[in-house]
Simulated scan of single mutants.
Amino acid sequence: MIIAEKIKESCGALSVVQRGNMLALRNGNVGYSCIYTDDSIYQPILIHIQKLIEAYTSVYTIKNALVLGGGCCTIPRFLIKRYHNTICIDSVEYQSEIIALTRKYFLEGMNVDKLNLINDDAYTYIHNTPKQYDFILVDIFVGDMMPQKTHTDMFIKDLECHTSCTSLVVFNAYKCSLDQCKELCKQGESLFDTSFVTVDSDGTYYIVFIKGNIDKSIIEPFINA
Rank of each mutant, 00 (worst) to 15 (best):
K186P: 00
G69R: 11
S190G: 04
I45K: 08
L115H: 01
F222K: 11
V170K: 05
L159M: 06
T74N: 12
R26N: 12
I214E: 08
Y32Q: 11
I214Q: 12
K63F: 08
I80S: 09
V197K: 09
L191V: 08
Q180V: 13
K211F: 01
Q50Y: 05
I35K: 09
I118D: 07
T204A: 14
L115Q: 02
I136Q: 02
L14R: 00
C161H: 11
K149S: 09
L25R: 00
Q50M: 14
E97A: 13
G109L: 10
I80R: 11
Y206T: 04
V59Q: 12
T166W: 07
K182E: 02
E54K: 10
Q148N: 12
N172Y: 03
N27S: 07
S217G: 10
S164N: 14
I210L: 13
G12S: 12
F155R: 03
V197G: 01
E9T: 10
S164M: 15
C88Y: 11
I35T: 01
S201R: 08
Q148M: 14
Y60W: 13
Y205I: 08
D139C: 02
D39S: 08
V59E: 07
D139F: 09
H127Y: 06
T198P: 06
V17M: 09
I80F: 02
K149H: 05
Q132S: 11
E189Q: 14
D153G: 04
Y133G: 07
G28W: 11
V59K: 13
Q180E: 08
D153N: 14
I53T: 07
S190D: 03
L79W: 03
L137Q: 04
T124Y: 14
D202A: 14
Y206H: 12
L178A: 07
L23R: 07
K131T: 00
F141K: 02
Q187H: 07
D153R: 13
T124H: 13
T102E: 06
K131C: 14
L101K: 04
D179I: 07
G28K: 07
V138F: 09
Q95I: 14
D120W: 02
P221M: 12
A173F: 06
S15K: 14
T37F: 06
F106C: 14
D215N: 07
I118R: 01
L101N: 03
M154H: 10
I210K: 05
M154E: 15
K104Y: 05
P76H: 02
T152P: 07
Q148H: 14
Y205R: 14
T57K: 15
E5T: 02
K51N: 13
Q132L: 04
T61L: 11
I214P: 01
V138T: 04
L23C: 01
S201I: 08
P76Q: 08
Y174W: 05
P76D: 02
S58G: 13
D153T: 13
M22A: 05
M1N: 05
G12P: 03
L191D: 00
I41W: 04
D39A: 10
D200E: 06
V16H: 04
K8Q: 12
I7V: 15
I75C: 12
F106L: 15
G20Q: 10
T61I: 11
T198H: 02
D121A: 08
I7C: 03
L68D: 00
F192T: 02
F78H: 13
S177E: 01
D38H: 03
V142G: 04
